[in-house]
Amino acid sequence: MRNLVIEPTSKTPKVILNADLGIFEITGRSIPEDAIGFYRKVLDWIEEYSKSPLPETTFKFHLEYFNTSSSKCLLDIFRKLERMHKAGHKVTIRWHYDADDEDMAETGQDYQALLDVPFELVPV
């Protein structure tokens, strides 16, 4: 399938979804007014990918900031990955955060508690 790469802006993160290389990442800041508009492409891509995923999918998130409208979209992404996991595919979410950023660590823990998919907290 076609890879999806979105370059970062001051309000939106860098997105790399590359099934050829097995790279799945969302990094940077995510504070758009219209988060649903921004994440629609990402969600569509994952939906398509989940029909025949690689034997192993490790999805990296490393966000500096995100707003509450993005938080709902992130949950939608996690739910899709959770569904893949429940369907028997090997899926891991890696939530990277700056080691001194307690708020981002706590947000990761919040998501971890809501989901039934391997969800690793990775201080960097």
């Binding site: 900031y65 707003n67 509450t68 950023d101 307690e102 708020d103």
Partner: peptide, 16 residues
């Protein structure tokens, strides 16, 4: 740094 991040976060939500 931590204060800065919090102020920025709160500001984003308030303005939006």
């Amino acid at each position: 740094r931590k204060v800065k991040k919090r102020v920025f976060n709160v500001m984003v939500e308030c303005l939006q």
